[in-house]
Simulated assay, not measured.
Amino acid sequence: METDLTYLPPHLPVPEDDGACDHLSGIQIPAVQLPSTDGTKVSLRDIPGRLVIYCYPMTGPSHIPLPPGWDEIPGARGCTPQACSFRDHYQELQQLQTAVFGMSTQSPEMQRSERERIHLPFHLLSDEQRYFSEALRLPLHYVESLVLLKRVTLVFEDGYLRKYFYPVFPPDKNIDAVLAYLKATTR
């Protein structure tokens, strides 16, 4: 059975702010290199100016079943709608001179097929080894044998975290809050 991953079912449980990101304000981006969907390794610390990283649990083609109980996990469902919303507003992000990446703990191969499937104009980064998430102590979902990032969006400027959005809900509206913040703080 295929699932329409662009659709957000009604009555999804809303994630609560558990304080798991309270320590992030002002933190420097870690000096790690992450595999990108273009086949290179990206050093996020070397990206000047503004950088948005939206962290998400997982995406996948609709023929791969979601983990059991996925829709009951607060904040888990909605990765494809979130990615598509960043895709649809990519030109605005560019006009605001902001680089953007999506990030999950999925393999670069899985992310590459997803980037192609949903036609993302930006790259996805794999934190499969969890170097980035452990350095920042980002919140995680533990689902069966999977260790997945909880949904959090990070806004860095010149290598330092200036704003985070957590919890993110609904995921397809996260871009609106990110754009509002970027516009309000544009120099």
Rank of each mutant, 00 (worst) to 15 (best):
E114R: 07
D18W: 09
D71A: 01
P61S: 01
R162K: 14
D88A: 15
E144F: 07
A76K: 01
G26W: 09
I47A: 08
G60D: 03
I64H: 11
T153C: 13
E134G: 03
S133P: 10
E157R: 14
Q97Y: 07
L182Q: 14
Q91W: 00
D4E: 04
T37F: 06
L179H: 11
I29R: 06
K183T: 08
Q94D: 11
T98R: 13
P65D: 04
A99V: 13
V152R: 10
F101Q: 14
S25H: 08
P61H: 07
H123G: 01
V32T: 11
H63L: 01
P167N: 10
H23C: 12
Y181R: 03
T3L: 05
Q82I: 08
R77S: 14
L148N: 00
H23S: 15
L124R: 03
G159T: 10
G49C: 02
L140C: 05
S107D: 04
Q129F: 05
M58N: 06
Q129Y: 09
G75W: 14
Y181M: 06
L146V: 03
V14N: 05
L8H: 07
L149P: 05
G69F: 05
M103T: 04
Y181E: 10
P108E: 03
P48T: 00
E109Q: 08
Y56T: 03
Y142G: 00
Q94V: 13
T186G: 08
V32S: 07
Y181K: 09
R162S: 11
R151D: 07
P35T: 04
T105K: 05
V152H: 12
L146H: 01
R87M: 09
K150Q: 15
P139H: 06
S126T: 03
Q95S: 13
F101N: 14
L138S: 10
Y181P: 06
Q33N: 11
V100R: 13
P81S: 15
N174R: 12
L51R: 15
R137S: 15
L125F: 06
V143H: 02
D17G: 07
L44Q: 07
V168K: 08
A180S: 08
F86L: 10
V52H: 12
R187C: 09
P170L: 11
T40K: 13
T186S: 14
T37L: 08
G159E: 11
S25E: 11
E116H: 02
C84S: 12
P15R: 07
D176H: 13
I118R: 09
Q94L: 14
T80D: 06
N174D: 15
D46P: 00
V52M: 10
F101W: 13
T98M: 12
E128Y: 03
A20W: 04
V143P: 00
E157C: 13
G102S: 00
V42K: 08
L24R: 06
D17V: 06
P68S: 00
S25L: 12
R130Y: 04
R151N: 12
E92Y: 06
L140N: 02
L93V: 01
